[in-house]
Write a protein that binds this DNA or RNA. Structure first.
Lengths: 266, 266
DNA sequence: GAGTGGTCTAGACCACCTC
DNA sequence: AGGTGGTCTAGACCACTCA
């Protein structure tokens, strides 16, 4: 009712409203966890139709500023507890120190015939058997990743049970005579989750996820695992230290904060 | 008018419509680059209001299936030419072989006083001068990254002009007596772009971007550069090879394709 | 039951692109 | 000029949450 007259020309109403509320969130006028005004209140305040208000709120969702819950309201998103993921074992140890428990759950495990793609990555023949395990992992009951692991099934016939009972992968491999293993390569991309993925990760379909694809090989360079994992983008950071140097020189105590825009002034 | 009766109960109309059109896109019935039916045609076909059709199209946008252009229509997104980025120099060389030209453009360069954050990362004192350069880079006129680079200004007084005239960073550093430099650490995250960023990268505001933050150090471990770069998420893949091993063992000829969902059956 | 967001309609006018 | 998407209104009913 008040601010609307100051609307810059050329800016649509819903954008303007979204920027006003967004501003109130960023300035801390509406605090994390608190509800923004209800749709009807905003209709009254700005004297616009409900559709316009809803469009504005949709933008706030797109920007990751609010979470909307039917029947309750729209709430300012809590600052994500940000997990920085380095190497698996180190990650678990690091979290344990902070009192965070990491837990894996196998959603599915199936022996399938290698597709052209999987055969190429694991250097198998087409249609050779591979284990396909779908895993979701939680840190303190919060889902952090959802992935899918492939192992050559002839070489690792019981790896599903082995991994399920023994979280230490190195020792599982040792049991098969693989004394050591290393990362051959990692690819990182990003995309939007499907609705099923978003539900499992307990995120909004409008939240981006990180896709990590990696291949581990034995000391002879033979692939033993291909892994495609999704990380909840807003709460996870992947970290690639250049190890020996990081030891010598010392990493920053905390990872850099992510700026809201790389174009911002300071 | 036809398919609507088969709508699964509990699924909203717009979701249903979006899935039908999405299916036609994925099945190839509507080809990349082609327009989907206009809003009015869809209104007639499904016998719903235009608002409902628009909501369905919005979802297709969110999923990255279509690009919408005012006054023209909604078009099935072309398969993104995917760039895999490894190391800068290697990246440029690799692209050049493929006949792709990589070009950098400086959007801004300014000497500023280090913020607490930048001082921490570059191990400077607060308010020491640093150069802040905003860079956009193009591969064949297509924007691929947008970033912001910080250098200690006392140590590298003319680095802006140096870098602008000489694309080979190693030789620029050599000019300042830095014979070699290495990556101390890299952090990877993802978020949604701001509208300004989306415009510069020529992407939709609904397309996620990869945020890469890295610190380079000289042989003594002293930071010489902090870099925060955004990559257009849908067309860029970052690659972290475990170098020596990759040489010995041989990487796959192509990076793994990214599955549409990690939950998909095969 | 009161209050919240989710879906859907029917219509209007505007901005932009193409011919 | 005619077709496309973009914005906005005024209303209706439904689904969910919480006291």
């Amino acid at each position: 009712m008040d601010t609307i007259e100051l609307k810059p020309p050329g800016l649509s109403l819903w954008r303007h409203i979204s920027e006003i509320i967004g501003g109130e969130i960023r300035s801390g006028k509406i605090k994390p966890g608190a509800a923004i005004p209800s749709e009807y209140e905003l209709v009254a305040r700005f004297d616009v139709s409900r559709h316009t208000v809803r469009r504005a709120i949709m933008r706030l969702r797109e920007q990751g500023l609010v979470d909307v819950v039917q029947g309750r309201g729209a709430f300012v998103r809590m600052k994500a507890l940000e997990y920085t993921i380095t190497e698996r074992t180190r990650f678990a140890k690091h979290l344990k120190q902070k009192g965070v428990e990491l837990r894996n759950r196998f959603l599915a495990a199936k022996k399938i015939a290698a597709s052209v793609e999987i055969a190429r990555l694991l250097r198998l023949d087409r249609r050779e058997p591979v284990w396909r395990i779908t895993v979701i992992s939680y840190a303190d009951e919060v889902p952090v990743s959802l992935g899918c692991v492939f192992h050559p099934a002839r070489r690792f016939p019981n790896i599903v049970q082995d991994r399920e009972t023994n979280p230490d992968i190195a020792s599982v491999y040792a049991h098969y005579g693989v004394e050591d293993y290393t990362r051959l390569s990692t690819w990182i991309a990003t995309r939007m989750p499907t609705e099923a993925e978003a539900e499992l990760l307990q995120i909004d379909v409008l939240d981006p996820v990180i896709v990590s694809q990696k291949i581990d090989v034995d000391p002879k360079g033979v692939p033993i695992e291909y892994n495609e994992t999704l990380f909840s983008g807003r709460s996870i950071r992947l970290h690639f230290p250049t190890s020996d140097l990081a030891m010598k020189s010392g990493l920053p105590d905390r990872p850099p904060t992510i700026s809201r825009s790389v174009l911002d002034s300071p």
